[in-house]
Write a protein that binds this DNA or RNA. Structure first.
Length: 583
RNA sequence: GGUCUGGUAGUUCAGUUGGUUAGAAUGUCGGCCUGUCACGCCGAAGGUCGCGGGUUCGAGUCCCGUCCAGACCGCCA
């Protein structure tokens, strides 16, 4: 027997018991006449004592111990003379009678501690060591528990988990597919699913009524801190529902997860914000509403006073930073540099300090009067002591830059507390997006999204104005998930394909099976998919989804631990009838 | 495809205008130490300054190229 207890479970009631523990050596503290060893496993840390007065026979073996050695010990549980309140086992220790080294260990390249000294690259290369650290273990435990609670809630709501294929058909719409060559069908390829979208709709046609799946999805696009080539979704679909039913059902899921994982009660209904308002007031389709600082369009009040930047601008927008009128020249310069970064893309920043005494100090004193500033301040709801930050230029770029500036100010002012949660439904998304390059409309969500009934007639004459029955769940400025009510009749679906520029043949070859299915009694249905990794990372309070994925890829899509992807042999290629082109 | 930041001891980093033998902390190793829990004290070892080229009397430092890592833009229905 390797152990009678784990390293996390012995307490004061176990004193005088004989126990056997196995684990990893976290740390050795040799005090000369006695030695303490912290023994670690997944469940915790237990202190071992080797006391010369009691028994010198183990001296040599203890001396040989190194970090991360795997050992087994037998001994007696004793109450500590000096207790450690920081760990659950801190009242006791094990006086060791026998010690067996099960395996020695090379010196790890970084310290296996909560605050490791290891950099990102090393941690990824030796991920199995990184995963020994408590923060990583806790993140994966959080992930496990979240999956469990999702299944619990969904089961209670009558949802059925159904597995859908991983090898499926490639479709050119949307993200780039990962493809898998088929040996038995030379020259043909499967695609890995970007989402099980069509399968879940077919399950609705099949009458399964409520489906969900915690499922891996794949997209062959460049990575980010919150984007991996393979990621996990909570994928859901329901029949005989309208948008309201879906929002309510999944608001319930969100509440259940907030409560069970973070013990947070969200008071009141989740707010809902039309996409158009989100863009107008926050410059983003995923606003962080933990703090207000809404944009105010002051274009009308800033023109015709001879300040060319404002006069030429399509849009002049302001945000009000409370109690920031005391900002120094240096701080304002930093903000100016921030908005001028290529990633933000503003050409400059205008500030208006509304001083405590009611006077104004601004970067545009030459062009405007104190009365002008007073008007702007009133419009922005600014009080003496506040600071207005103003960007101007083309509408789209300026809204986007102002969004970045708002979030930066939120960070500076400590308004983005990781332990505070502000969920939000963004609704009424546009159905279509015009793409200048290819001179055609693309589905903003996906081509199966239904237009709003009241906008249906616009579909022919002004498709860009049509709003969709589509919605996103946004928490703290993170897009946690999104979905839509689907089209369930083949006539409307055909029309959508037409608007999207598909020929009948293309629509038939790519989605014919779905259109065909719709002919056999498709119920009205809709659904949603949540980014499981993002949600876990939000609850775990970490910045990157890599921190909640056991074995993630790096930013070039590589697994630096096993060096995938890799070349395959000539014979493998031959079998697949594939030839590699020289660059 | 692009922009930016970084690569120096096992690790995390510092390194002045281009100038003597490249430093600190931590870890490691050795010694001392009987109540530590980030133990303490003393001592030691540890470097292809990512790689290649160039400028220079002289390059960790400047220039060019390249590789690697990270953040972001494009992309991600």
């Amino acid at each position: 027997m390797f152990r009678t207890h784990t390293c996390g479970e012995l307490r004061i009631v176990d004193v005088n018991g004989s126990v056997t523990l196995s684990g990893w050596v976290q740390r050795v503290r040799n005090l000369g006449g006695m030695t303490f060893v912290d023994l670690r496993d997944r469940y915790g840390i237990t202190q071992l004592v080797f006391d010369d007065d009691a028994d010198k026979s183990l001296n040599e073996e203890v001396h040989a111990l190194g970090r991360e050695y795997v050992v087994q010990v037998t001994g007696m549980v004793a109450e500590r003379s000096s207790k450690n309140s920081k760990i659950p086992t801190g009242d006791i220790e094990v006086i060791v009678k026998s010690l067996k080294i099960l395996n020695s260990a090379d010196l790890p390249p970084f310290t296996i501690e909560d605050e490791t000294d290891g950099g990102e690259e090393l941690r990824m290369k030796y991920r199995y060591l990184d995963l020994r650290r408590t923060p990583m273990r806790k993140a994966l435990e959080m992930r496990h528990k979240m999956a469990l609670e999702v299944r619990q809630y969904m089961n209670d709501q009558n949802f059925l988990e159904v597995e859908t294929p991983v090898l499926m058909k490639s479709t050119p719409e949307g993200a780039r597919d990962f493809v898998v060559p088929s040996r038995m069908n030379p020259g043909q390829f499967y695609a890995l699913p970007q989402s099980p979208q069509v399968f879940k709709q077919l399950l609705m046609v099949a009458g399964y009524d409520r489906y969900f799946q915690i499922v891996k999805c794949f997209r062959d696009e460049d990575l980010r801190a919150d984007r991996q080539p393979e990621f996990t979704q909570i994928d859901c679909e329901m029949s005989f529902v309208d948008q309201e039913d879906i929002l309510n059902t999944f608001e319930g899921l969100a509440r259940h997860l907030f409560k069970s994982l973070r013990n947070v009660d969200i008071v009141g209904d989740f707010p809902r914000m039309p996409f158009a308002d989100a863009m107008k007031f926050y410059g983003s389709d995923k606003p962080d509403i933990r703090f207000d600082m809404r944009f105010v369009d002051i274009s009308s009040m800033t023109k015709g006073k001879g300040f060319k930047v404002f006069d030429d601008a399509e849009y002049v927008g302001a945000i009000c930073a409370e109690r920031c009128a005391t900002y120094s020249r240096k701080e304002l310069d930093q903000l100016t540099d921030f908005v001028k970064k290529p990633q933000v893309g503003a050409t400059g920043l205008v500030y208006v300090k509304y001083n405590q005494d009611g006077s104004f100090k601004t970067s545009v004193d030459k062009f405007f009067s104190p009365d002008d500033f007073k008007e702007w301040a009133e419009m922005c709801g600014a009080k003496p002591g506040d600071l207005l930050l103003i960007l101007a230029g083309a509408r789209k770029q300026t809204l986007s830059a102002l969004c970045d500036l708002r979030l930066e100010m939120g960070n500076r002012l400590g308004l983005r507390d990781n332990n505070k949660f502000a969920p939000l439904w963004v609704v009424d998304f546009p159905l279509l997006e015009w793409d200048d390059n290819s001179q055609r409309f693309y589905a903003m969500h996906h081509p199966f999204t239904s237009p709003k009934d009241e906008d249906m007639e616009l579909l022919d004459r002004n498709p860009g104005e049509v709003r969709a029955n589509a919605y996103d769940l946004v928490i703290n400025g993170v897009e946690i998930g999104g979905g839509s009510i689907r089209i369930h009749n083949d006539g409307l679906q055909n029309k959508m394909f037409k608007v999207l520029g598909f020929t009948e043949e293309e629509a038939e070859s790519q989605f014919g099976f779905l259109m065909n299915a719709f002919k056999y009694g498709a119920p009205p249905h809709g659904g949603v998919a949540f980014g499981f990794d993002r949600w876990v990372s939000l609850f775990a309070g970490v910045d990157s989804i890599r921190e909640v994925i056991a074995f993630p890829k790096n930013n070039a899509g590589r697994d630096v631990m096993n060096d995938a992807p890799s070349y395959i042999s000539k014979s493998q290629l031959d079998e697949l009838m594939i030839e590699i082109k020289n660059k």
